[in-house]
Design a protein around this nucleic acid. Structure first.
Lengths: 147, 147
DNA sequence: CATGAAGTGTAGCCACGGCTACATTTTCAT
DNA sequence: ATGAAAATGTAGCCGTGGCTACACTTCATG
């Protein structure tokens, strides 16, 4: 990918807005993987195994879609799986899942703390959490601690 | 044996998680349109006209990408544009843009209020705002008002 | 132990949102 | 008025993330 870009065109005056949008797009591209990793960790922790069909059902997608996503997880070095056997997380996958789970909790707690109803907090956190930077996450934690 | 469960398909128990993920995917699919609508409204308000190239520059994408997105805006009834003339918003587009702008402001204010640094607040709001439901938005407003 | 159901995998389709390359139209300066 | 530059539009590619349809394993169970 991105091989031999002869002239990276440094854009001396890249608008701040453009940079922000770019980052937002990046975050979005990782969101799915994060969700899968978190769910797989959850399934492994509770049920003992993570099968593509279980994953698909929990995510509300077809099993084919889940399998394609799992393939991508493998490509990214986050999961391992052998045909007709369950899915497992690599070290990196575990780490990611733990981070995602922790962040999810903080986001939900923050929402609840500022008065968002439980149902909405769960729903909205699902989408928002992938865009919460470390700085923001830290601020959320501070706010929750010192209130 | 089959007389026991004649309708195994009905899925009365769609996992709450599946529903949440589905909604999150929906929100994501509208996010781009919202960004474009908001930006076009901004350009029309300040500069007087919204040209594809301006839009592309502000968003950090190629002009071809911007033009494709504009085509989608037109398809969705949010914008109008004639070849080689500028882009304009329909009534629906204006309404959407106004709503998006207001929501963006509230989200940034909320983040600032709980201690998120300005830079991170702007950045993160860009991605988060598309997942903020009305209920959450209302809660944010209440929190900001009564603090 | 055979067979069928459930789970798994593969192939191929679609829409989206990126991109580059090329063609066309407008605009603007000389 | 013309010709070059800029803007615009079109075509075609890629990867992602959905889907359905079909093929193949696994595994329980009769």
């Amino acid at each position: 990918m991105l091989s031999a870009d002869p002239d990276p065109i440094v854009l001396p005056e890249e608008p701040a807005q453009a940079r922000r949008f770019g980052k937002t797009r990046d975050a979005q591209s990782h969101a799915l993987l994060e969700d899968y990793a978190e769910l797989i960790a959850d399934l492994l922790a509770t049920g003992g195994e993570a099968r593509p069909t279980d994953i698909a059902r929990r995510l509300g997608v077809s099993h084919a879609t889940a399998i394609k996503a799992i393939a991508r997880l493998k490509r990214e070095g986050l999961a391992t799986a052998r045909p007709y056997r369950g899915v497992f997380l690599t070290e990196a996958g575990e780490t990611l899942a733990a981070r995602v789970r922790a962040r999810h909790r903080v986001v939900v707690d923050l929402l609840r703390a500022v008065g968002v109803p439980a149902e909405a907090a769960e729903q909205d956190a699902e989408g928002m959490e992938h865009h919460v930077s470390d700085a923001t996450l830290a601020a959320f934690s501070r706010f929750l601690a010192g209130r």
